[in-house]
């Protein structure tokens, strides 16, 4: 069994209104040193696959077909054998 830990973030070129709101909240709490906040999603997908390579290919496919919208989002992932 494999577990993919997938992080999805809005692309750098896309404004993140949620991140901006949190950034303002942090600075009003006194964290004047905060420069940027980006909010994304974290997904854990557990699945069976024959090899690390096969698992990796499948995570990419799942991410590009459903888990992310490539028009506005980027993703990174880590694979753990469980």
């Amino acid at each position: 069994m494999w577990k993919a830990e997938i992080k999805v973030l809005l692309k750098k070129s896309v404004l993140d209104p949620q991140g901006q709101a949190v950034e303002k909240a942090l600075s009003s709490l006194g964290y004047g040193n905060v420069q940027d906040v980006r909010i994304g999603k974290y997904l854990e997908v557990s699945f069976a696959a024959g090899s690390h390579k096969e698992a990796e290919d499948q995570v990419r496919e799942m991410s590009e077909r459903l888990l992310t919208n490539p028009v506005i989002e980027d993703y990174t992932f880590e694979l753990v054998e469980v």
Binding site: L10, V14, L15, P17, Q18, V71
Partner: peptide, 15 residues
């Protein structure tokens, strides 16, 4: 999402 129209729609700037 189905790829029939270009672009994407996401959270309103005002939230």
């Amino acid at each position: 999402e189905a790829g029939l129209l270009p672009g994407a729609l996401y959270r309103n700037l005002s939230l």
